[in-house]
């Protein structure tokens, strides 16, 4: 049986998460997890299982995540890269619905179950503005300094359509490949 972990158990810095779901861990994986916990506890002061899960990303079987530190590291890197790849499309899509300021976009993504750090979002918005894909305007705030609102430009709309198309091509290819691989061999 394969146990799937959601990103609620993964780090915010890894990017994606599903805060409402809880992990379902199979008995065999629990044994493996306990072994890692106690072996790791002898080496570190921190909670090793937590740190292992912390470095893992969403939707990855526990036995793959924690089978080795190398695997976890590779998984964490892959998650970060996946988030970076998806974030421009997500941001352009959210901005096509309505203009928002930076932190508001993070909150809107969190409402969708995706946790993204400001360290990823703010530079992305800066790059989108530099490339002319979003326009900005300052709006006075009653609770502090004025906020910078971002809205999609016409170039941004075209880019979003193009990126979405690319994403669909990749997603379809990945889906087809994984379905084929996971199908029982004759």
């Amino acid at each position: 049986m394969t146990s799937w972990l959601t990103a609620a158990d993964g780090p915010a810095r890894a990017g994606l998460s599903g805060p409402k779901a809880r992990p379902v861990i199979a008995g065999r994986d629990q044994v493996a997890g306990l072994l890692i916990y106690f072996v790791g506890a002898a080496r570190r002061d921190t909670d090793p299982l937590a740190s292992c899960l912390d470095s893992c990303g969403p939707l990855v079987p526990l036995r793959y995540q924690c089978s080795s530190s190398t695997m976890s590291r590779i998984q964490a890197q892959q998650d970060a890269q996946l988030t970076r790849a998806a974030l421009p499309l997500l941001t352009l899509t959210l901005l096509s619905n309505e203009e928002s300021y930076g932190y508001q976009l993070i909150e809107r993504l969190a409402d969708l179950g995706l946790e993204v750090t400001t360290g990823l979002m703010y530079p992305l918005l800066s790059r989108l503005e530099r490339d002319g894909l979003v326009s900005t305007r300052m709006v006075p705030s009653t609770s502090g300094p004025p906020r910078k609102y971002f809205a999609l430009t016409e170039a941004g709309r075209m880019t979003r359509a193009s990126v979405q198309e690319q994403w669909q091509v990749v997603a379809t290819a990945v889906h087809a490949a994984t379905e084929k691989e996971s199908a029982p061999h004759a």
Partner: peptide, 28 residues
């Protein structure tokens, strides 16, 4: 600076979320 000033979270969380200055600079 303005964004940090208007961040509703405490300073420690805000700065941790931004990450190390060197890595954040690379993102820009």
């Amino acid at each position: 600076r303005q964004t940090l000033a208007s961040d509703p979270r405490d300073t420690t969380t805000s700065l941790r979320d931004l990450g190390a200055p060197r890595l954040l600079a690379e993102q820009y």
